[in-house]
Simulated scan of single mutants.
Amino acid sequence: MKETESEWQPQVRAQARQRATSSSGLVISCRTYFGFGSYGTSDAGRVRDLTVAVSPSHAALILAEREQRATDSDLHEAVAEAIADTYFRQGGGGCADL
């Protein structure tokens, strides 16, 4: 069983990476803290669950960094940029400074 699994699993992962970087992108789900107003207002900061589908180009960058054994900090930056671009800037066309 282990021999088959060791041969099969890398192929499945490679196919998933190929799909993510060429057509489907990645779905990133995280828990984050953000807000826009002062404490006690409806826009006050709070923890939110966020699920974002990022583009294949962002997926390619994240997966390439992961394969190059990037640090958690480097991966955090790449994922944060992908989420910011998708969620706040609508694929680069919204508020570029966010």
Rank of each mutant, 00 (worst) to 15 (best):
M1W: 10
M1L: 06
E3R: 09
E3P: 01
E3H: 01
S6Q: 13
E7F: 04
Q9P: 01
P10K: 05
A14Q: 10
Q18W: 01
R19F: 03
R19I: 12
A20L: 06
T21G: 00
T21H: 03
S22W: 00
S24K: 09
V27I: 15
I28R: 06
S29C: 06
C30M: 08
F34R: 13
F36S: 12
G37W: 04
Y39C: 04
G40M: 02
T41G: 09
T41A: 09
A44E: 14
R46A: 03
V47R: 10
R48D: 08
V52Q: 12
V52Y: 12
A53T: 14
V54K: 05
S55D: 09
S57Q: 13
A59M: 06
A59F: 05
A60F: 07
A60Y: 06
L61V: 07
L61Y: 00
I62E: 09
I62R: 00
E65F: 07
R66A: 02
E67M: 11
D72T: 00
H76T: 08
A78M: 05
V79E: 15
V79G: 13
E81R: 05
I83G: 00
T86I: 01
Y87P: 01
Y87H: 15
F88T: 03
R89D: 15
R89A: 08
G93K: 13
G93R: 14
C95W: 11
L98M: 13
